[in-house]
Design a protein around this nucleic acid. Structure first.
Lengths: 223, 223
DNA sequence: ACAATAGTGTCTGTTAGACACTATGCC
DNA sequence: GGCATAGTGTCTAACAGACACTATTGT
């Protein structure tokens, strides 16, 4: 038996205080013209499924090498009208600026948290919800949310990202201290970012050694 | 492109103080007669890949409904001599008694931790190592190792399992307290297990509500 | 009674969390 | 100078870890 085999990518960003997923209009049947997750078939020249996911994303958005992680597979005889199918789901995290400057005119952002999405083809709603659940749970004990920020960012910005992703308020002071303990960030010399008539914040970037790794040291960042 | 699509299962147990993986002798090419992970193709009647993994395991060992979790996929043009292939890897955890009483005569147990295994076909070594890494890291903050125990077990037995999986000594007293806080276990009334000329230990079982869930409450069980 | 492990009590250093405080840039 | 937010100091309660103690069984 040869099932239909695809990759799908949940491209997430944080906009207006909530996680949003990028949807694209399908070109071909089934569900032609419907808004759905970017996805596609494996190509002979892909070195792996992860490679295929990155290629699909680059083709549709121009985004290259975002944070990309395998989520899990979704499979069964009924999820695709063409027959037994399996998709390997990935999720990607990018700063909102990356998406807003992307050339894709046929891109739509939809809130990915509750309330639950409606009208998506296949089991794309389940996939998005699994991605959001994964991002949330991992964020409680890792530096994953950094990938939702620009290359340089201030501590208050990162603080707001964590609060939005986790959905709980975090003490500013303790959050700072935790970050310092983890030693994930390095200061960008002499750079600040201000917004309004008040003291501007210093800018930081993620240390290279943690670029695609997760810091599970300590007991997480929830404080 | 239609890659070769399979499932593979890393069946793990704890024997002689270390994690061991079950290998089976392959019936067909490629690598016929080689010792490898139990695996196979998806069948039309499987409801999902997880279902296929459970079926494969039941066919080869008779073991039904063990703890079974998707690990990740392994894919690429070179891992199978027949061409571009993808396997969805699962891992299963069982008590050693389950394996020793299994009807499989063509089953072999090999130590899964370091030193690294040699001579396995495909990328089965990578798959086993990924499974072991996953089990170890999850054990630090969950009740996963319970599935390596018999249906009823004593606290000292579970304590030994945690120590073996994590590879570090854990204080007996603090381990007990942690378990009590998590409230994962319930006492089996009037049951004890003794081994030697000393006080026997009370027996416990996992509460039903946690049977296939993970408790991530608190800060893990490492103490 | 003794050996050996099961199970409990208690102390201490560390850490998460709360909150008050000071610093600084922009208007 | 005042406002608004950046950034720091400090107190407290909770918890992890260490370790000494008591309890209970088989021999």
């Amino acid at each position: 038996m040869k099932p239909i085999l695809t990759v799908d990518v949940v491209l997430l960003t944080l906009l207006e205080g909530q996680l949003q997923a990028a949807l694209f209009q399908r070109a071909a049947d089934p569900f032609a013209a419907a808004w759905a997750l970017p996805g596609g078939f494996i190509h002979e020249e892909d070195a792996s499924v992860a490679d295929a996911a990155a290629r699909v994303l680059a083709d549709k958005t121009g985004i290259v090498s975002p944070y990309l992680e395998e989520l899990c597979t979704f499979s069964g005889p009924c999820r695709d009208p063409r027959g037994w199918s399996l998709t390997v789901a990935y999720f990607a995290l990018v700063a909102p600026e990356v998406l807003l400057s992307a050339p894709a005119s046929s891109l739509r952002l939809v809130p990915a948290g509750p309330p639950r999405l409606r009208g998506l083809p296949f089991d794309h709603r389940d996939i998005i919800e699994a991605a959001v659940a994964r991002v949330r749970s991992k964020s409680a004990y890792s530096s994953l949310p950094v990938h939702l920020c620009n290359p340089t960012f201030s501590i208050p910005e990162l603080h707001a990202v964590y609060e939005a992703v986790l959905g709980v308020p975090l003490d500013r002071a303790n959050f700072r201290r935790k970050l310092e303990d983890l030693n994930l960030l390095e200061e960008v010399p002499d750079e600040t970012r201000g917004a309004g008539r008040h003291r501007p914040a210093r800018l930081y970037r993620q240390r290279k050694e943690f670029m695609h790794a997760l810091s599970v040291r300590g007991r997480g960042i929830g404080g």
